[in-house]
Every structure is written in C-alpha cells, then in structure tokens.
Design a protein around this nucleic acid. Structure first.
Length: 459
RNA sequence: GGCCCUAUCGUCUAACGGUUAGGACGUAAGCUUCUCAAGCUUAAAAUCCGGGUUCGAUUCCCGGUAGGGUCACCA
C-alpha cells in the first residue's frame, strides 16, 4: 500500500526542505519549544525551504484555545514566520482514512478492551501489529540509533476510527505536509521507533530526523514551571526578540565564528544542523541579559525612549519637571544602567530617576562626603561652584565645559570634598551619574538653583 | 528498574589525532573624573574515572561513574 504525498504534488516542492514545529496547546509557549521553532526555521531557511506550524490538539480535553493563541503570538513576537499552518482537530477525516487503510491491509486491528478510565466499561482501541523487529534510524546530530521494538508491543494508535492518537497523527501529518526533516527535542527519541513502525506499515517514506539537546534548569533537570520563567511570554516585557533569538540560537549550537552577536540573516547563512551540540544546556538568564544589553545598546534613541516611557511609573511621569526633552537627554545614562526593560521600572521605583524631574530632598548633613566634617566649608564650596558655573555661557553649558570650569578648583581643594557635595546637591543620591553630565541635562538655571538650595540648607 | 541519549573552566561553548586547550557570560583585581553605572586591562578557572588503539589522544574504541530522557486509551 502506497500513499502519494498531496502536499508535494500540489506545490511541486519535491526536493524542498520542509520543517515544522508541532506544539500541543496544553500550555503556554515554552522556551524549549521556541528554540525548537528557531532551529527548524533556521534549517529550513538555510536550505531555501519551508517552515510550518501544526497545532497538535487531538486531545480535546487538554487543549485550550488560549494556549494556541499564546503559541501563535509567541512566534509572532520572535518574528519567526511560518509558511503553512494546520490544526489536527480539523483533520480527523484524513486520519480516519489512514486508520482504515491500516486495518484493511491487516497492519492494525480493532480490539475491545476494558476502558482505562472506567474499567467496568469496554472500549474500542486500534492497535498496530508490531512486527517486533529492530529499528535503526539515522539522527543528523547523534548518528545511528537502534531500538528493539518488541518491547513496545502492539501499541495503541487510535481510540477509535475517529479518535486518532499522537503517534498516528504525527506520522500522517508529517507525510501529508511534505515534512522532509523532523527537528525536535531529545525527549522524542524514544517515540521515533514507534513512528517509523507506523510509516513502514503505511508504506510511506521515512523523513530525516534530528533530535535537539534539551534546555535544562540550573539543577540540570528538565526546565519546567517549577523553575520559574519558562514561558516565552514572560520575556516579552523586558527583552528584545532579536536578543532572545540570538541567545537561543547559541544554546546548543555554535557557528564557530568569533562574533557571537549575529543577525538573523547571518544565523540563517551559518546554521548547520550537524554543528548542534549533543548534551543538554542550562538556560542561563544572566547570559541572556548580557546579550539583551548588547541589543539594547544598539537600539536607536527613539525606540529606547518609547520603551522607557512605557516602563515609567506614573508617579515619575507626574513629577513637576517631567518632560520628554529631559528624558531624552537622560537616555544614555538610563541605557547604560539597564540590562532589561524591566530594569527601568526597578530604577524608577528605587527613586534613582527622580532627580532628573524634581528637586531632591535630603538632610544637609548628607552633603558631607566620607572624609569631610566641616559643613561650613561645604557651604563655601557650594557657593564657589555656584559662581563658577554662573559665569558660564548658558548656551554652552555642556558636560565638557562644566568639567573644565570646575576641575582645577576641585583638584586643588580635593575632588571628593568638592564633587561629592556638588553631585549630592544635584541628585540627593549617594550613588548616581557624575555631576558634570547631570548639570548639562538639568541646564544652567536648574543646576544653579539646586546649588543655592543646597547651601541654603546649611545654616 | 528496562530501553535510549549525553559528558571540555561555575555557565554557554571552540578544537573535527599533534594548540601554552581558545572565546563569551559570570567572578576577582586594577585603571578611568567623588559615588554608582558603563568602558578598558589583567587574573583565577575545564578535558568525569580506568583501560585500550596510536609515535601521539579532549578528539577513536571498550568498561565504569555521573547526569538526563522515556517507558499512556497525553503530546
């Protein structure tokens, strides 16, 4: 018994590489599935082929529309477009045809057995006649793998003619959709011999296989819910999709280039399935953040400003001097302080951004640097600073000119003794960017005003 | 437990029989405008163990050990 492949016939893609991901919508899109999608995508595009998405929702009870949505949105966020889409719940008739053929050709049989759910009832089950032989298949990453299928028995391929089960639907769909390369997680290795048995019973061609190493949690166990953020959607608010793609691509794969920040086109060009690692890799959020930072550094100013504004708590946006102009000049400073966009919110909540938009509040004694004891002296410094900066041209009130004007004086008196109170007067913070750049951002008038306010605090 | 897969710095990895075992992240120290951040420089840090094969093993083979996956009328 032979089946022709409808997909290949109608699209004339005989020699083409076709890959797919086949998630079941029983949970949100997992980072492991996302990486699987990436590798399938890279492999297909490297070979000028097609990448497909198939929702495996034959288990009606566990499948949820919202999870299907999450999977689709996740792929959209990552910008991994698929060239075809199928949903198994819509394809029952197709599976029935194949089940009938299997039964008609005596490769499978219907059997009445006690139901597993309710042992008092009997249920119909369709089982494959197992030829009980060794199956060896070639894995593009691991080489030949051999299983003795005898221990599998006559396994169940459908609950009834109209209720196909996973192994049957995968085989049928991969064939019907013309999938040439099945690239999936290592946890599917032991499913492969069953699926090959079904292919052989159907007389259809065996696709190529590649089993990806698993993404592991810190303790080297399979990454799962109990290890925290494993849903891709958890990364949408803080991370750039390109950064996620770049990081995921390098988890279990490496092009051997010195550069580790690569564009999508470069990844596609360089991707080679045989370079994929065999051992599992720990999902390292710290490294992900480092990659994300590199991408944030490359983000243009407008895009960054947009992200910053969306992350700022309303409390900060309501500060008296808040304006997008000031925010824009503070952007480089904010950029170098964040690894994810969520860090912006954290910064704001810690009060580290307030000084840009409001006069700081603090006790006069805080104006004293670590080694200083004389507040009266600080007052003199503050007044001197005020007069030095006051003589500067407001139009050229820049980081460099401010620094040039203040530097000699500060060096003569002791930099810490002068610069600490200057910075504190401007920010009210023990830790902050340097006083020169802050003065520039604040502008001449506001800088002078804060210096006066500080010296006024000292009696 | 059966079957299957895997094993290089803490982590991600390079090396495809011959290297002072390289890089990145992280860590430490130093430098750079007071503090912080960023940046730069430097440092510490690995071939799981035991046998083979070979003139020579991170690399090939075998065994052990360890870790992982899988054993549904889920996918």
């Amino acid at each position: 018994m032979k089946f022709s492949n409808p997909f290949q016939k109608k699209s004339g893609t005989e020699a083409k590489v076709v890959t797919r991901i086949a998630p079941s919508p029983t949970g949100p899109l997992h980072v492991g599935t996302a990486r699987s999608a990436l590798f399938n995508y890279l492999f297909a595009k490297h070979h000028g082929g097609l990448f497909l998405l198939r929702i495996e929702d034959t288990d009606r009870k566990r499948s949820k529309k919202e999870f299907e949505q999450d999977i689709i949105e996740g792929l959209a966020w990552l910008q991994l477009p698929y060239d075809g889409f199928e949903k198994q719940s819509l394809r029952t008739d197709i599976y029935t045809t194949y089940i009938d053929r299997l039964i008609d050709s005596n490769k499978a049989y219907s059997s009445k057995e006690a139901s597993k759910e309710d042992p008092t009832k009997t249920a119909e089950l369709i089982r494959l006649k197992n030829p009980n032989k060794d199956i060896t298949f070639h894995d593009l990453i691991r080489g030949d793998i051999t299983f003795n299928t005898a221990e599998l028995g006559d396994f169940v391929i459908a609950k009834s003619r109209s209720e196909p089960l996973y192994h049957l639907t995968v085989v049928v769909d991969d064939f019907e959709m013309g999938v040439s390369h099945i690239i999936r997680g290592e946890d599917h290795i032991s499913n492969t011999p069953r699926q090959i048995l079904i292919q052989e019973a159907l007389g259809i061609e065996r696709p190529s296989y590649a089993h990806l190493p698993l993404i592991l949690a810190e303790d080297r166990s399979k990454l799962s819910k109990r290890h925290g953020a494993v849903s891709l959607s958890a990364f949408k608010s803080g991370y750039l999709p390109d950064a996620m793609i770049n990081y995921l691509a390098f988890l279990g794969w490496n092009p051997g280039t010195k550069e580790e920040i690569l564009t999508r086109d470069e990844l596609i060009k360089l991707f080679d399935i045989s370079d994929v690692q065999k051992g599992g890799a720990i999902f390292d959020i710290v490294k992900l953040k480092a990659v994300n930072k590199k991408y944030i550094n490359r983000l243009d100013r407008e895009a960054l400003q947009e992200r910053v504004i969306s992350k700022l708590p309303t409390r900060v946006k309501q500060l008296e001097h808040f304006s997008e102009e000031i925010l824009n000049s503070a952007l480089p400073l904010i950029r170098e302080r964040i690894k994810t966009f969520d860090d912006i919110t954290a910064l704001a909540e810690n009060g580290e951004l307030d000084f840009y938009f409001a006069r700081p509040n603090y006790e006069a004694s805080r104006l004293l640097s670590k080694d200083a004891h004389d507040l009266g002296q600080v007052k003199v410094y503050l007044e001197t600073l005020h007069s030095i900066l006051g003589s500067l041209d407001a139009g050229a009130f820049s980081e460099d000119s401010i620094k040039a004007a203040v530097w000699d004086f500060a060096t003569k008196e002791g930099r810490g003794l002068v610069l600490w109170p200057m910075r504190y007067a401007l920010t009210g913070l023990a830790k902050s960017p340097d006083p020169f750049i802050i003065s520039e951002i604040l502008g001449k008038d506001e800088t002078l005003a804060r210096l006066s306010a500080a010296s006024a605090k000292i009696k």
